[in-house]
Design a protein around this nucleic acid. Structure first.
Lengths: 144, 144
DNA sequence: AATCTTATTGATAATTAATTTCAATAAACA
DNA sequence: TGTTTATTGAAATTAATTATCAATAAGATT
C-alpha cells in the first residue's frame, strides 16, 4: 500500500505540501532535518511553509510512513520508511544511509539481556555508523 | 581512573559546578536532560547557571565521562558513563535505565551487515526499551 | 462542472532550547 | 598568600519548534 492510499484511507488529505515533502524524502539518499527539507523545497521553487514541514513530518512519522534516523552528533533526520522491520547504517563522511535487516540477529542478544537485567524488552533502537563503499575508495586513493 | 583525575590531567579544573553536575548524574537512575539537571540542582539549592550545565555536559561527554542516552520520543538525556563498552535498556514507564554489555553479540550482526551493504562499520548505537522488573510487577497487580 | 464542507495551509507570533558574550570569580600553582 | 587564567553566572542572542487563525484547497456531493 502506498502512502497516499494509507493517508486517504485514514481520512487525511493528500495535499500538495505533503506530496512535496514525500517527493524529497523518497529521492533523498540521506536523512534530512526539518530545516534541510524546507530549504531543499524552497531552492527547488516548491514553496511550503516551515510549519507545514514540521506538521507533515509529525503526522507521517506517527503513521510510520517516515521514520527518524539519528545522525552523528545527535541530530534527528527523517527518511521515507521502507517496508518491514529494518535498521540503518550511515556513512560518517557523506551521510548516505542504507537499510539493513537484522531482527533475527538481535533476538539472541535480546534474550541474553532479558535474562541479565530482568527487563522485558519491547522495542529497540539500532543504527550502525561507518564508511560507505564510495568513501572507502576515496580514502584509499588519498593514501596512494 | 576517576573523572576528577581525568579532568585535571588534561588541564581542566575540577570546579564546584562540575562536581555538582557529576554528583547528580552519578546518583540518578535515569538519563537527565540539561534542563532537568538544572532544575534538580536549583531545587537542591546547589545553584548553577544554565549555561554551565550545557558547557559541563558538552565537555564531559566529549571526554567520555558522561554519555548521551536517547529517551523514548527522541529526547537526549545524559548519564554518567560506566567503564568499558556497554549499552542501555530503558524502562518505558519509569525511565529507569540500566546497562548491559553486548559487544560480542553484535559482532556477528556487524559482519553480516558489512557483507550485505559493503559499508565499513566503525561505530554503533544500540538501546533497548521495555519494562523494568518493578513496572512489570505493577502491571501484573493491576490485572488481578 | 459547480458547490459545499472542513482539513490543511502559510504567515506570524509565541514559546522553548541552546549558545554566545563578557566582567567577575575561584581553581591551581608558585 | 598572591598570581594567573580557566571557568562561571547573568543576560543577550540565536536557533528550533509549536500555536494561532484567517485564507485556501482537497475531496465529497450534487
Amino acid at each position: 500500500m502506498n502512502w497516499q492510499k494509507q493517508l486517504s484511507d485514514l481520512g487525511f488529505r493528500v495535499s500538495a505540501p505533503r506530496k512535496r515533502v514525500m517527493a524529497v524524502l523518497e529521492s533523498a539518499q540521506q536523512p534530512l532535518t526539518p530545516l534541510e527539507l524546507h530549504q531543499t523545497l524552497l531552492r527547488d521553487h516548491k514553496a511550503i511553509g516551515l510549519a507545514s514541514v514540521y506538521r507533515t513530518l509529525g503526522l507521517l512519522s506517527a503513521l510510520g510512513i517516515v521514520e527518524v534516523v539519528y545522525r552523528s552528533k545527535g541530530e534527528m533526520g527523517y527518511m521515507a520508511a521502507a517496508q518491514g522491520h529494518h535498521h540503518h547504517i550511515l556513512c560518517q563522511e557523506c551521510q548516505r544511509a542504507v537499510e539493513f535487516s537484522g531482527l533475527e540477529d538481535l533476538s539472541e542478544l535480546i534474550d541474553h539481556v532479558e535474562n541479565q537485567t530482568h527487563y522485558q524488552v519491547r522495542d529497540h533502537l539500532l543504527q550502525l555508523y561507518g564508511l560507505c563503499p564510495e568513501c572507502q575508495s576515496k580514502h584509499a586513493d588519498e593514501k596512494e
